[in-house]
């Protein structure tokens, strides 16, 4: 058991180490409680994309047997529509969450050929996901890049994504997954501020997109010790006895 003096010394030195981080945790925690959620979501100008219109005709589909060599090892083969065109989407590695590393192949359902998307597809999808009076001009003047190494805007994403960076006042970037071929996020400066707050709260200084990192573990442990020594000090010190018990 710690002596009173050892308890006080321990409390003082732990406080020296964690004080700034404690202020950051409380400040960012307050931000999460007070932040304007709809604005911080980045979805101010986002709308849902309908990938399959109701009036579409029944497509011609190649049989899966013709693709059997390509589908060796597949765990699921789905017929899906993207921008009114049907595709076979084969999953070779399924994950619980879309952001985890996945292994898929896309096939043209008419020819059976492997399908890849290009800037035209990305431009069209980005346009459809925007509800903005000048959306055509915005997307036409946008910078489009395929990112395979991760981005600070979506740190948890482990798959290749297309980034459509608009030249607007909020610096909106539309992210499209190369795996699902859907819009996964609109990120603007409001959302980036929220991301920064999460990064500080989680101590995610290596941009992993999570909180299971060594910094947060060490500081959480030290803060728990700080709280325990603080409460102990409060309860057992002469100050407590003198001021509150008498």
């Amino acid at each position: 058991m710690l002596t009173k003096r050892a308890n006080a010394v321990l409390h003082k030195w732990i406080a020296t180490i964690v004080s700034i981080q404690l202020v950051i945790w409380l400040g960012t925690g307050l931000y999460f409680g007070l932040a304007d959620d709809p604005k911080a979501s980045g979805n101010q100008f986002r709308q849902k994309v309908e990938h399959k219109s109701e009036s579409l005709q029944t497509p011609t589909l190649v049989t899966l047997k013709k693709l059997s060599s390509e589908l060796s090892g597949a765990k699921r083969v789905s017929l899906v529509w993207r921008l009114d065109k049907p595709y076979y989407l084969a999953f070779f590695q399924e994950t619980a969450h879309g952001y985890q590393k996945q292994s898929v192949k896309w096939f043209d359902t008419e020819t059976g050929a492997l399908s890849v998307i290009n800037k035209n597809y990305v431009t069209e999808l980005a346009q459809q996901s925007l509800k903005h009076a000048e959306k055509n001009t915005l997307v036409e003047n946008a910078t489009i890049n395929l990112i395979s190494t991760g981005t600070k805007d979506i740190p948890s994403e482990r798959n290749a994504i297309w980034a459509v960076a608009l030249n607007n006042t909020d610096n909106t970037t539309i992210y499209i997954s190369d795996v699902s071929r859907k819009v996964i996020a609109h990120v603007d400066d409001h959302k980036r501020l929220k991301n920064l707050m999460f990064q500080l709260h989680f101590m995610d200084y290596f941009n992993t997109g999570g909180f299971n990192n060594i910094f947060s573990k060490v500081f959480a442990l030290l803060t728990l010790l700080l709280a325990i020594t603080g409460i102990r000090w409060l309860f057992i010190s002469k100050v407590w006895k003198g001021k509150f018990v008498k």
Partner: peptide, 12 residues
């Protein structure tokens, strides 16, 4: 603060 640090520690 004790509750925050104990619950936070479990989470991380």
């Amino acid at each position: 603060v004790f509750i925050w640090s104990a619950t936070g520690l479990y989470m991380v």
